[in-house]
Simulated scan of single mutants.
Amino acid sequence: MVATSTLSAVKVIGAKGQILLGKKYAGRQVLVEEQEPGVWLVRTVTVLPDNERWLHESKAAADLERALAWATVNPPDDANTEQLLEKLADGPG
C-alpha cells in the first residue's frame, strides 16, 4: 500500500485571479481541471512539444542508450585533433 498525504491550505484568490502555491512550484507548469463549478484539481505536468515527441519513442530511446554506452567506453580526447580537422577540411569522401 502506498502512503499518500494530503495538504490542505486556505488560499485567497487575488484581484487578478491568481493563487500562490509556494516557491517550490515556481516556474513549473500545472494542469488545472475544473471538475465542477468551484472545484479544481491542480497537477504539475511536463508538456512535451510535438517536434520533440520522437525523442521519447522506443527507437530513439534505444539509439540514445547505445550512444551513451559508447560514450562511456570511449571518453573524449584530443590526441588526433589536427588530423581530424584536416580530414573535415578536405570535405566528404
Rank of each mutant, 00 (worst) to 15 (best):
D63I: 09
V30S: 05
V32N: 08
L68Y: 09
E34H: 03
S58G: 02
Q29S: 09
A79N: 04
T72W: 10
T72K: 15
S5E: 13
P37R: 10
E34S: 05
P75C: 01
L64Y: 11
V30N: 07
T81Q: 11
L55C: 02
D77G: 04
G91F: 05
Q18V: 12
T4K: 12
N74G: 00
A79G: 00
L85G: 00
V32G: 03
K23T: 06
E34W: 02
V45T: 09
R53M: 08
A69I: 07
L55G: 04
K59H: 08
P75G: 02
K59P: 00
K11M: 05
G17V: 07
L7H: 13
A9H: 10
A79L: 10
G27T: 01
S58Y: 07
K24D: 12
Y25H: 11
L41W: 09
T72F: 07
V32H: 05
A3K: 13
A67D: 05
H56R: 12
I19D: 06
V2M: 09
P76C: 00
L21P: 01
L31N: 12
N74D: 02
D63W: 11
D77W: 00
Q35F: 05
E36Y: 09
K24W: 05
L31V: 08
L20A: 15
V32T: 14
E33V: 11
G38L: 06
T4A: 09
A9K: 12
R66D: 05
P49L: 02
L20G: 10
D63S: 04
A67K: 11
K23F: 06
P37C: 03
L68C: 04
W40C: 08
V2F: 12
E86M: 11
T72L: 10
N51S: 04
A3S: 14
T44G: 01
D78P: 00
I19S: 04
V39E: 13
E82K: 13
E86Q: 13
P49C: 02
T44N: 05
A69F: 02
A9L: 09
R28S: 10
L20D: 13
T44H: 01
P76H: 04
K24F: 06
L20Y: 15
P49H: 01
E34R: 02
A69V: 07
A26F: 07
P49K: 01
D90V: 03
K23Q: 14
K59F: 09
I19E: 06
Q35G: 08
P75E: 05
L20S: 14
N74A: 00
T81N: 03
A60W: 05
Y25K: 07
D90A: 13
Y25R: 06
E33T: 15
A69T: 13
Q83M: 13
T46C: 08
P49Y: 01
P75D: 04
W40F: 15
W54Y: 15
P92M: 03
P49M: 02
Y25C: 02
S5H: 11
G27K: 01
A62D: 14
V42Y: 03
K23W: 06
G38K: 03
A61D: 00
G91M: 07
G38P: 06
V45F: 02
V10I: 12
A79W: 04
V2S: 11
A67R: 12
N74P: 01
